[in-house]
């Protein structure tokens, strides 16, 4: 059996089926929804960081822009929710296109510039001068489209598409070329790879999934403020979940989200600063002791991890 089919049958399909039926047996709908959103975001980070090596410190910029794309479609154009979600994806891609020049920067420069870009979008959206369009810092309320069950299913669909994209990257010459570019862009060009095109495509793909996720999040919660949907925690959680499991794999980010977000909710911290403390220590420990993620425990023993 070709490995792409194997990955689809044994990773993608079970994940999507379980998440699709879980709301029927488990009460905490919001928690499940957050799981799906973080799975999408962690895989989005996987696409851009795992396969191309760009660390998107401002990944939440696409998510927040998507949420506001959804809100503006609904508030000003009375668009139906599904159309508004698609618009959120388009907003993600447009912001991604606008930021493509950042791909000229490498390493830390890219990470910081991307962070700055997300903060710039936040301050733009939250600016009182734009109140007539975005409602500025006062937040939006979209009760007309409120429908958590449909939003949840849309999130599962986006997750399926995102994981399918990662399965494709893991099994295609496109994905292999991306990893070659990540390792050494000059040698990659000398292997005939169109370095710029590859990077831009991966960047736009990860912008698209974050934009879609943001739109669906807006649909689900229906009332939010700029600080909610542009919260740096989305970027950081997504990056840490992906890293903890292991990037450039299909399963790594999934395992990362299930374990870390699972622990987060099991412990259920009421005081965020204790969580932040444990989280910070976890990040430091991860970098110092397990820089290639949980999957490296297996790969070090010579086991293959999809």
């Amino acid at each position: 059996m070709p490995s792409a089919l194997k990955h689809t049958l044994f990773i993608l399909a079970p994940l999507v089926i379980v998440l699709a039926v879980l709301p029927g047996v488990y009460q905490n709908h919001l928690l499940l929804f957050n799981f799906v959103i973080f799975l999408v975001l962690a895989q989005g980070v996987n696409i851009i960081y795992g396969f191309t090596g760009y660390l998107p410190f401002g990944y939440v910029g696409f998510f927040g822009a998507g949420a506001y794309g959804f809100a503006i479609m609904v508030m000003h154009l009375q668009a139906p929710a599904l159309l508004a979600v698609l618009a959120a994806g388009v907003v993600g891609i447009l912001l991604g296109l606008l930021l493509t020049p950042l791909l000229r920067l490498s390493g830390a420069y890219f990470a910081i510039a991307n962070l700055a870009a997300s903060l710039a979008v936040l301050h733009l959206v939250a600016n009182p001068a734009l109140e007539s369009i975005t409602k500025g810092p006062y937040g939006v309320s979209l009760t007309g489209t409120f429908n958590p069950n449909s939003a949840y299913m849309a999130a599962v669909v986006v997750l399926a598409l995102t994981v399918a994209a990662v399965v494709y990257l893991k099994n295609s010459s496109f994905g292999l070329a991306l990893q070659a570019v990540r390792e050494d862009s000059v040698s990659a060009a000398m292997a005939g790879v169109n370095v710029v095109k590859m990077r831009v495509l991966a960047w736009l793909a990860s912008a698209l999934v974050a934009g879609l996720a943001g739109g669906i999040y807006a649909w689900y919660v229906s009332v939010f403020y700029p600080d909610n949907v542009f919260s740096g925690e989305f970027s950081i959680f997504a990056i840490v979940f992906a890293l903890f499991g292991g990037v450039a794999t299909i399963t790594g980010p999934i395992v990362g989200v299930i374990i870390l977000y699972g622990i987060y909710n099991l412990i259920g911290f009421t005081t965020p600063q204790y969580f932040q403390l444990i989280y910070g220590l976890l990040i430091m420990g991860l970098v110092l002791f397990l820089p290639a993620g949980l999957v490296s425990l297996a790969t070090r023993r010579g086991w293959h991890v999809p």
């Binding site: 660390l55 950081i236 990056i239 932040q276 403390l277 910070g280 220590l281 990040i283 991860l286 970098v287």
Partner: peptide, 15 residues
């Protein structure tokens, strides 16, 4: 990795 490490440190200090 240093970016991520020092980010972790900043979280610890803030917390």
């Amino acid at each position: 990795l240093s970016i991520i490490l020092f980010f972790g440190l900043s979280q610890v200090i803030e917390a």
